[in-house]
Every structure is written in structure tokens, then in C-alpha cells.
């Protein structure tokens, strides 16, 4: 349980630019260390997406809860949030003495996030996907480009998934 929280603590410090940039890192850490099977990870990602709240926090809460109950869920969630809490505290204490070029930092983050989202996409694709899942993903991608609401896409694909499975 502590090992699991340590992973979320570590990854918390890298969680820039929206949840999707860290999902790939989390998969490497969780599946690579044998804490979750690829199938369990796939399920956890889907669950995190259809539940209200930030995807990465949901993932932390769910994996903690699944194996260790409420205590694991609390511990995991807090571990993941420790990084932002620590940094906000540091900013309060240091005030504006720390000089960071904001524009530059934002640019650097964007670059790093691009690579991290790429890693996430790659790791999501590494699960053996059957043909119709791939087709559905491509469809979902083009729908987002046409500004269809993501929730509509998520639940629409879920409904199609139910139809296919019956």
C-alpha cells in the first residue's frame, strides 16, 4: 500500500497540463511494477473518465480503494495531491522572491506535456485493441475535432460498447 502511494506521490510532481499527461506515466509505474494488470488499468481509466472529478485524482482514489479500501483511497488521493499542496505552500512562504520567467515556464511545460500526452496515447494503444475499438477511437477523435461535447462521445461510445457485447 505504501509502495502504491509512493508512486502517486512521485507522479504528483509531474502532473502538469491536465490529467492525460500523467496517465501514461502512471501506467508504466503501476503495470510495470506489477501492481495492476493491463486489463485492470484499462478498466480503471474508463471508470476514472465516467466519474465526476479530475481523471488523475479519480485514478488515484480508485486504485487505492480497489486493493486497500477506504484508508488506501484516502492515502492515495492525499499522496497525489501532496505535490501541488507543497508547491502552493512554498509559494506562500517564499512570496514572490522566487523569480521564474512565467512565459518561458509555460512554454517549457507545453513542450513537456506534448511528449507526456504522446506517451499516454502510446501506452493506451499498447493494450491489444480489437478492430472495432480502434475504429471507435478514430470516430471519437474526429467527433472531438468537430467540437462534439466529450461527455456525449464518452457515453455514446459506452452505449455502443454495450450493444456490441450483447
Amino acid at each position: 500500500m505504501w509502495r502504491l502511494s509512493a508512486i502517486f506521490l512521485k507522479v504528483g510532481f509531474l502532473s502538469f497540463g491536465g490529467g492525460w499527461s500523467v496517465v501514461g506515466v502512471l501506467k508504466n509505474e503501476l503495470v510495470g511494477n506489477g501492481i495492476l494488470t493491463p486489463e485492470e488499468f484499462t478498466k480503471a481509466v474508463s471508470i476514472a473518465q465516467v466519474t465526476p472529478g479530475p481523471v488523475a485524482i479519480n485514478l488515484a482514489t480508485y486504485t487505492g480503494y480497489k486493493d486497500y479500501g477506504l484508508f488506501g483511497a484516502v492515502l492515495n488521493t492525499l499522496s497525489f495531491l501532496a505535490a501541488p499542496i507543497a508547491i502552493v505552500l512554498a509559494v506562500f512562504l517564499l512570496g514572490s522572491r522566487a523569480k521564474i520567467d512565467k512565459e518561458r515556464w509555460a512554454g517549457a511545460l507545453k513542450g513537456a506535456c506534448t511528449v507526456m500526452v504522446f506517451v499516454t496515447l502510446l501506452s493506451l494503444l499498447r493494450n491489444h485493441l480489437d478492430l472495432w475499438t480502434v475504429l471507435l477511437s478514430i470516430g471519437a477523435f474526429f467527433l472531438t475535432l468537430r467540437k462534439v461535447h466529450p461527455l456525449l462521445i464518452v457515453f455514446g461510445c459506452g452505449a455502443l460498447g454495450v450493444l456490441f457485447s450483447l
Binding site: T114, L121, T133, S137, I138, A140, V154, G158, G161, L166
Partner: peptide, 27 residues
């Protein structure tokens, strides 16, 4: 439940599409 598994698989497909779109926006 087979239906639940189907639902989660469908959601996973949507997630792959959404992440691809996030990447596209970043680029």
C-alpha cells in the same frame, strides 16, 4: 456482467480518441 464490460470497453475507445485529440491540440 458482459454489458458492463462492453460499456467500459466502449468508454476506453472514446478515451483513446480524446487523448489523441488532446495531443493534436497541444501540437
Amino acid at each position: 456482467s458482459v454489458a458492463l464490460r462492453g460499456f467500459l470497453n466502449g468508454v476506453y475507445a472514446a478515451v483513446v480518441g480524446l487523448v489523441a485529440s488532446v495531443l493534436y491540440q497541444f501540437v
